[in-house]
């Protein structure tokens, strides 16, 4: 696949603080790539480098084959940008704002069509000041879409949206990727990344802690099994755990928690043992790791390896 966004050892420094500490990523045409991470991990700083709003301290970035900062004129007509905060004059109406942006955009689609796409039709004459937070986000998205961009950068596109608007926005973004638009988005919502992303990266303290398809990122984490043992049974009576793929265990009172890299084998062995011994495992729960667990683990700083994509 043709790479549309490529960075190598990308770094960004503010006065005495390095916000982006060596990011390598590649996004192919038509892909939806999600950048996750807690606040202050460098997502927006990275995005600004990709959008060409700032020059990197060191390292390289190419968008559609050009340097987005030095070759702004070549890149800008082909990308759409949605900032984390709108930045619209509050006394203009929705239509006036969109018309102004259309006038500054090559090959802009009709303003009505763009507002329709984000369900702002009927709100054209309302001043930006009077819009709800969610409506402003949608106006911002409409402007990012005005130029039919090949690459779309969305910084927290659904923050502040209600559940229905969020689903509508997902639907809209999905439609765009189906048409071949490349999308790079940041989000706080893990569900959003799970729903939309072909691939994702979780950032932590300015580096990519882990990246890949959702299933890959999750597969790196251990699955969990938990149950209660009857009062007359002890953990030590279970079959040897390590050969079953169990990497950790803890017990709190009668409750036992196991972590395993081979959920099926561990679960089979555990259930066979319980049947043979006639033991009832109360509150039995077995599940694969979730993206949320992967995320929380990294956010807590337990992850120190610097896996790259």
């Amino acid at each position: 696949m043709e790479p549309v966004i490529e960075t190598a050892d990308l770094r960004r420094r503010y006065r005495d603080f390095e916000a982006v500490r060596g990011i390598d990523l590649t996004v192919a045409r038509g892909e939806l790539f999600a950048l996750l991470g807690t606040n202050g991990t460098g997502k927006t700083s990275t995005l600004e480098l990709l959008e060409g709003q700032a020059a990197p301290a060191t390292g390289s970035v190419r968008v559609l084959g050009h340097d987005p900062y030095r070759e702004r004129a070549a890149v800008r007509p082909r990308i759409g940008v949605m900032l984390q905060e709108g930045g619209f004059p509050t006394e203009l109406t929705v239509a006036e704002t969109a018309r102004m942006w259309a006038g500054c955009t090559s090959g802009a689609r009709p303003v009505d069509e763009a507002l329709e796409a984000v369900r702002l039709a009927g709100r054209e004459k309302v001043r930006v000041r009077q819009l709800s937070g969610g409506e402003r986000r949608r106006l911002d998205l409409a402007l990012a879409l005005l130029g039919r961009p090949e690459v779309l950068f969305l910084d927290e596109p659904t923050t502040g949206l209600d559940a229905q608007s969020r689903r509508d926005t997902w639907e809209l973004i999905r439609g765009l990727t189906e048409q071949g638009t490349t999308v790079l988005l940041t989000t706080h919502y893990l569900e959003e990344a799970e729903q939309l992303a072909d691939r994702l990266a979780i950032m932590h303290e300015g580096v990519i802690a882990t990246s890949g398809r959702v299933s890959d990122v999750v597969a790196e984490r251990p699955a969990r099994i938990s149950f209660e043992l009857p009062p007359d049974r002890f953990l030590g009576e279970l079959p040897p755990l390590a050969p079953l793929g169990v990497t950790g265990h803890e017990s709190a009172g009668p409750r036992v928690h196991l972590e395993t890299v081979d959920l099926q084998r561990t679960a089979t062995a555990l259930l066979s043992w319980a049947r043979d011994e006639g033991v009832e495992l109360r509150g039995l729960d077995a599940r694969s790791a979730t993206l949320e667990e992967a995320f929380m683990e990294i956010a807590r700083g337990l992850e120190s390896e610097g896996a790259r994509c």
């Binding site: 959008e51 007509p77 900032l83 905060e85 930045g87 500054c104 090559s106």
Partner: peptide, 10 residues
């Protein structure tokens, strides 16, 4: 942040 927004465009 209007100037910043304008600078993301053409």
């Amino acid at each position: 942040l209007v100037l910043k927004r304008l600078r993301t465009g053409e």
